[in-house]
């Protein structure tokens, strides 16, 4: 215990630096994923093939391959096409694009599970398609999709650990570096695991649950989670 405290004292600031990078990656990739989910999820619901098919292609491609492969491809191969990203940027783009594909399916699924009568009622009131979605369908769909979004954001946080493999100095990267110089593997990777766990359990989960509760209340329903 004593020695672990010394270890933390010595390397704590590096863990902190790494954690900050991980948080940045998570937030930026998260925003990207949410934006992509909304656009691609709605596109997949379109009745026009021209709009629907690119969405299907996007979802199937990013869910069909590995995040790590996508990351390497964006970082190592795209530059050869003249598209070069700085490693930090390549990191959140890969994570955001990948999780966005999963998010798009959540958006689509939850919109489809809003009872059809709601859509018909909005139509009968002569609301425009945009108004129907924004005022009637989406608010109800959001209530359905929030719990799985909580899980997806934890997956996203976990996904950001891979950006260390293209040398972004995130939490995982720092843990590996410290391990390399101290050979205290249990301490190095163990500390990283605990920090990841705390971020997932004490930040993402409670925040999402609070948002769920808020939204359920706003929708006039009681939050229903076990």
């Amino acid at each position: 215990m004593q020695s672990y405290l010394e270890y933390l004292d010595q390397h704590g600031s590096r863990f902190l630096d790494g954690t900050l990078i991980t948080i940045q990656q998570t937030i930026i990739a998260g925003l990207l994923a949410i934006a992509i989910s909304l656009v691609v999820g709605l596109m997949k619901l379109s009745s026009h093939k021209v709009i629907r098919w690119p969405a299907i292609g996007y979802i199937e491609f990013f869910r069909g391959t590995s995040l790590l492969v996508q990351l390497y491809w964006i970082f190592f191969v795209l530059p050869l096409f003249g598209i070069t990203f700085e490693k930090f940027t390549a990191g959140f783009i890969a994570v955001g694009l990948n999780l966005g594909a999963y998010g798009a399916e959540l958006v689509r699924g939850s919109i489809q599970s809003v009872p059809r009568g709601q859509y018909e009622a909005a139509l009968a009131l002569n609301m425009s398609p945009y108004k129907r979605m924004k005022r009637i369908i989406f608010p109800q769909a959001l209530l359905i999709m929030l719990p799985p979004w909580g899980n997806l954001l934890i997956e996203l946080l976990k996904g950001t650990a891979l950006v260390s493999l293209i040398a972004v100095a995130d939490l995982m990267f720092e843990a590996k570096q410290i391990n390399g110089s101290t050979f205290l593997s249990a301490e190095s990777f163990g500390t990283a695991l605990i920090i990841y766990y705390l971020m997932a359990r004490l930040v993402i989960s409670p925040a999402m649950r609070a948002f769920e509760k808020y939204w359920a209340k706003k929708m006039g329903r009681f939050a229903n989670h076990a």
């Binding site: 934890i154 946080l157 976990k158 996904g159 950001t160 650990a161 891979l162 260390s164 493999l165 995982m172 843990a175 590996k176 391990n179 050979f183 205290l184 593997s185 249990a186 190095s188 990777f189 163990g190 990283a192 695991l193 990841y196 766990y197 997932a200 359990r201």
Partner: peptide, 23 residues
């Protein structure tokens, strides 16, 4: 179960691989 599920697999892989030799 919660712990394993909420932490990155890649860190767990490193952990299992490197912690053994330490002991």
């Amino acid at each position: 179960v919660e712990f394993i599920r909420s932490t990155p697999l890649v860190v767990q892989i490193f952990f299992v691989f490197y912690v053994g030799p330490q002991f």
